[in-house]
Amino acid sequence: MFCRNSTEDGMASDQSDVLRGTLDLLILKTLTLEPMHGWGISARIQQYSGGLLDVNQGSLYPALQRLEQRGWVASDWRTTENNRRAKYYALTASGRRAVGAEAANWRRYVDAVQLILDIA
C-alpha cells in the first residue's frame, strides 16, 4: 500500500512514495547514526535521499509506534538544543540486529527486480 503524499507543497511530482515496509528499514537505518526525534528522522531521510524520498508524516508516527512495540526502538522525552521537549527514538540491541536482516532482505528484493528489468 502506498502512502499518499501531500500534493500541496508543489514538489511532489518528482518525489517517490515510500513503501511501508521500506519506511521501517529507512527509519531503522537513520537511527543507527544517533537517537532522533520524529521530525529529525523525516528530515534526515529527505536529506540523504537528495530530496527524492518524502516521508509521509501520517505513516511515520504509527511506524515508530510499531517499531517500538516490536522492541526495535525505544523512546524517551528529552530536551532539544533549543530547550524544547521532544520525544527521541533510539535503536535497541535487537533493533540493531534487525537493520542488518532488513537491509539484506531489501537488497535481495532490489536485485530480483533488477534481474527482471534487465531481461525486459
Binding site: 501531500s6 500541496e8 507543497d9 501520517g58 509506534q65 512495540q69
Partner: peptide, 22 residues
C-alpha cells in the same frame, strides 16, 4: 499552513497510532 498540510490528516494519524497500540 503548509506544515499542517504536509503532515496530513492529524486525526487519521491519531487514529492509526491508537490502532497500533494493540
Amino acid at each position: 499552513r503548509l506544515a499542517v498540510a504536509h503532515f496530513g490528516g492529524v486525526e487519521r494519524v491519531r487514529e492509526e497510532h491508537r490502532d497500533v497500540r494493540r
